[in-house]
């Protein structure tokens, strides 16, 4: 396999909680604890977990919106965080983000054309004809007409707004697109259209997606690889098929078992693979079975990600 496009190595993010700024014992909230992930070119990697598990913080670190406390992020082998990090301009060419709520992330006082033209102008595309060309192309590729670019965000429906959010992320032709809950604010029928669009675009432009989601059925549909996060740590990661057909960690199993899926509930589809108690491989035990919330102000107990099948890692500790 070639070198990964993006590689996150031992990422830690901590936030100060209370206590004196000068005190020796400042309590810290450990949002992300030693997270390591690789994202290959053209793949869709999903991070799943419940609110507060640190998945959005991880995404913000990748985008450079949250400075890591420790650890490094490399993009094509070059630092993407820390003192040697590229400028915001270069960063914008590499990674862009699609947000959950497209209405909140679009400027209501700018037409779509203005919103799309601004990043191009900042990157020295100033000729009116080229601007128009690029905007026209991107509008078409997200399934809107170029004429609609003259409108304001409030004139669009929720699904169309999310298309504009995607268009804005793609206008600079980034290699990585971070999708933060891209469809969870949308209705079922619109959601299907946006999912189809995202998959089409990925194929067309060879995009790499880092998707943050809590909706496991969407994750199963879209991802190549899945990482399950629980309180700042990855507890299980692997190819989508391994995670969904052979989940090992008790937290992953619980997540999969609790999805209300019509097929599983009514016994129409296949049986959910997560029945029965979790079995740790011989000689190992689960450091944290995910049944109770750990103390977020403490460093977690030592444990390691063990490869139990090719590419399939589970967090275990030696017993």
């Amino acid at each position: 396999m070639n070198a990964p496009l993006l590689s996150i190595d031992d990422l830690h993010v901590r936030f100060p909680l209370s206590g004196s700024w000068f005190g020796r014992q400042r309590r810290m909230l450990h949002a992300v604890n030693g997270l390591s992930l690789d994202l290959a070119k053209g793949e869709c990697l999903s991070i799943v977990g419940e609110s507060g598990c640190g998945k959005s913080t991880t995404a913000l670190s990748v985008m450079g919106l949250q400075e890591p406390t420790q650890g490094s992020i490399l993009f094509r082998g070059k630092p993407f965080s820390g003192p040697q990090a590229p400028s915001r301009m270069e960063r914008a060419m590499a990674a862009q983000m699609v947000f959950q709520d497209p209405y909140a992330s679009l400027n209501p006082r700018q037409t779509v054309w203005q919103s799309l033209a601004q990043p191009l102008r900042l990157h020295n595309v100033t000729a009116r004809s080229e601007l128009s060309d690029r905007i026209e192309t991107v509008m078409r590729s997200v399934g809107l007409t170029p004429e609609q670019a003259a409108r304001y965000p409030h004139e669009f429906s929720g699904g169309q707004r999310q298309r504009i959010g995607i268009a804005r992320a793609l206008i600079l032709q980034p290699e990585i697109v971070v999708l933060d809950e891209p469809v969870s604010a949308l209705d079922v029928s619109i959601r299907a259209q946006i999912i189809n669009l995202l998959l089409d675009l990925q194929e067309e432009f060879g995009l790499s997606y880092l998707m943050i989601s809590h909706d496991l059925s969407v994750v199963e549909h879209m991802s190549d690889r899945v990482a399950v996060m629980f309180f700042g740590q990855i507890v299980e990661t692997g190819p989508w098929s391994a995670i969904f057909s052979d989940p090992v960690h008790p937290y992953t199993r619980r997540l999969i078992a609790t999805i209300p899926d019509p097929g599983a509930v009514l016994g129409l589809g296949r049986e959910v693979a997560a029945e029965g108690p979790a079995q740790a491989p011989a000689g190992w035990s689960f450091a944290d079975d995910g049944s109770s919330a750990p103390d977020v102000t403490q460093e977690p107990k030592p444990s390691e990600l063990v490869e139990i099948a090719p590419g399939h890692f589970v967090r275990l500790s030696r017993s």
């Binding site: 079922v188 029928s189 959601r191 299907a192 259209q193 999912i195 189809n196 998959l199 496991l216 059925s217 969407v218 199963e220 549909h221 989508w240 098929s241 969904f244 057909s245 999969i256 999805i259 899926d261 019509p262 097929g263 599983a264 589809g269 296949r270 959910v272």
Partner: peptide
């Protein structure tokens, strides 16, 4: 029918491969 087809179903990718979700429109 459109609504049900638009829903990604858990486990169906393992059985039938990734199928395009139904676009209700």
């Amino acid at each position: 029918r459109g609504l049900l087809g638009a829903l990604p179903k858990l486990g169906s990718r393992g059985l039938h491969g990734r199928q395009r979700l139904v676009d209700i429109d």
